[in-house]
């Protein structure tokens, strides 16, 4: 049996990878994917805890999260398209109409 901490550390690492991806990638699509990665890392945490606590709640929650993540992804992509229409670019660093 793999100890709980391993899962937690793994999910933390995945979460961190997601965070870093969001922070440094210059393409909105990849940034979106990184966010998904963060959410999935959390899912992993939930499952690990559910497993170690022996409760089903965690597992159920994951379904909720997946649904939410899907909704977010849809919206996200729509927004990205809308932005792309105005800018012809997907680089978040170029989007600086609004500042200060």
């Amino acid at each position: 049996m793999v100890p709980l901490d391993y899962y937690l550390i793994l999910s933390a690492i995945i979460f961190a990878i997601g965070v870093v991806g969001v922070l440094i990638r210059r393409n909105l699509i990849i940034v979106l994917m990184s966010i998904e990665l963060m959410l999935n890392a959390v899912n992993l945490t939930f499952i690990a805890f559910a497993n170690s606590l022996g409760s089903m709640d965690g597992q159920v929650i994951v379904f909720f999260v997946m649904a939410v993540a899907a909704a977010e992804a849809v919206i996200g992509l729509a927004i990205v398209i809308s932005v792309f229409r105005h800018r012809q670019s997907l680089d978040p660093q170029e989007m600086q109409l609004l500042k200060w």
Partner: peptide, 13 residues
Amino acid sequence: REAQTGNVQHYLI
């Protein structure tokens, strides 16, 4: 106010 660069990734940092 310069800290508010307009770059979303700076915000996230």
